[in-house]
Nucleic acid binder design. Structure first.
Lengths: 86, 86
DNA sequence: TAGATATTTAGATATTTGTCTAATTATATA
DNA sequence: TATATAATTAGACAAATATCTAAATATCTA
């Protein structure tokens, strides 16, 4: 939970999630959408991976990233409990 | 949005939200639930207030805090769009 | 096998953040 | 009005974070 909120607390990482909701992408394709360096993007991807918000699969020399909707669901659940009771 | 995720990225602030979902409380009552000092709690409350996750109303010498469910809803909406498309 | 490409790791640095103590402000009450 | 209580503000400091450049690792292909 901690790691998920930490991962969500950055506009670039949230934008990466928005990209991945459309289609899976490799690290380079993701990096092309931003102005910061590839190592920085790599760091953000690692952060998302640690939170299990994304899953990475190596495919030859590329690394493919996929959104993990399960974890997003868990956070939605938690937020909904906050909004439940009187 | 930025401020909301920033506010959610701290276990104490999330616990404050969980307290306030049960009932409104003043700053002192909130502070009693934690081991850290009152100024630190005050800082956390300010952070939640900036994110508009809580609303504060002064009542005599006390300051009452209420959960603002509207903003929580907005975050739920955003997360749900992430989980929408293929 | 040599060179090119994709990605990550390492190490440095500036900024942000959470905490504390001390001081301040605002209100209540004896 | 003087004192006590509630809460915030100010300032300091250690830890965490986002970024960069340079280097390393892994894979592909001529």
């Amino acid at each position: 939970m901690n790691r998920v909120f930490k991962a969500l607390n950055d506009p670039i990482r949230r934008e990466i999630l928005e990209l991945l909701k459309e289609k899976d992408m490799n690290a380079g394709e993701i990096a092309d959408h931003f102005e910061i360096t590839k190592p920085s993007i790599s760091h953000h991807l690692d952060c998302l991976k640690q939170a299990e918000l994304v899953i990475s699969v190596k495919k030859g020399q590329y690394v493919n990233y996929t959104l993990n909707k399960t974890v997003v669901d868990e956070i939605i659940q938690w937020l909904m409990t906050i909004n439940l009771k009187k």
